[in-house]
Amino acid sequence: MGDILVNKIKVARAERGLTQEQLAARVKVTRQTIGLIEKGKYNPSLQLCLSLAKELGKTLDDLFWEE
């Protein structure tokens, strides 16, 4: 996972004013999983990508498409 893509998730979370813990609770994963996704150390499933996009008010393209 590229750095730009990774930062998009982190930036989107910060824009929403959510902590890793809060986002994790909303998408029903652990804080560790959110941390790993943000650091580019874990590729989430499509289902989790959708949950993240919904919670962060973004589309999949906004969060996961590299320009």
Partner: peptide
């Protein structure tokens, strides 16, 4: 899968 009994909910784990 019957393995689901042994697995946690968190997808990374």
């Amino acid at each position: 899968s019957f393995l689901n009994v042994f697995l946690p909910d968190d997808e990374y784990k």
